[in-house]
Amino acid sequence: MLIRRAPTALAAVAALVLTGAAAEVGTAPLRVVSINLCTDQLAMTLAAPGQLVSVSSLAQDPRTSLMADRAAAFPANHGRAEEIYLLRPDLVLASSFTTPATLSMLRRLGVPVATFEPETSLDGVTRSILQMGQALGREAEAHDMAARFRGDLAALRAQGGAGPLAATWAANGYMTGTETLSADVLRAAGFDLVAERLGMRFGASIPLESLLMTDPDAVVTGPPDGAPARADDVVRHPALARSRAARIEVDDREWICGLPQVLAAARDLKNAREGLERGSGRLPPDAAAKGPIP
């Protein structure tokens, strides 16, 4: 291939250089293997027919993937270096959080690897689309897709004014911070964030008590998991049910990856937000600042 020894540091930059070189000489990769749920779904959306040879098994699981039906048509991999190498890929798509041992093994075996940063904002989604277009040699398609995404986002994004206060709340009391995709989706849907008030950037498990003391208007959780675990108890805690916070359900797979489809979750949240504001007698969009409801 073009560059046999990709530098191990700054993998994302290396991937851009690598695929940039590919585009220059007009040779798009022909056998692409994706080993990460998010790159799986983005690649399935952008790849030319026959260009993608395998996606990860997570992409075929309807609990985690939005495109399980389409993914079922591809042979699945489990992210192990050996099985990936045997697929003879000329490009592997991975996350920058993929096990470093797997990535360095692939690089040692001479397989070019493009890594994608997890999206922490809606702008990050645009970046990922463009990076994927470049990696696959499908720039034109990617530019169209990014433009459509930007347009849809601009049409959706709530304007000005203070919105209802919301927090995500998951197993073990995990709340996502301000610098996450879900936070940006909530902001776009017109919510203020509990994480902002708590000064939480990335997310952490916090006591239920701390969540309740911020007196949120809405708590965004996933639907109950099929398999029981104690970790979910805190999501269904009676104190939360008795608080005045409305519960909004968003399936994890809707916004776990920075895909264009994330706007569907944003739209649902926006509708939920407007419902809340109607219910509390406030007038969107420039409603009065949030105050305690008597």
Binding site: A171, N172, G173, D225, A231, D232, D233, H237, P238
Partner: peptide, 25 residues
């Protein structure tokens, strides 16, 4: 063996015990 990804981390709870976020239930 549980398909729930959080189940394995509960081993600590069962070995060490905790009263955090328990309710009237």
């Amino acid at each position: 063996l549980s398909p729930n990804p959080f189940a394995a981390s509960e081993i600590v709870f069962w070995m060490m015990g905790s009263l955090a976020d328990r309710s009237w239930i």
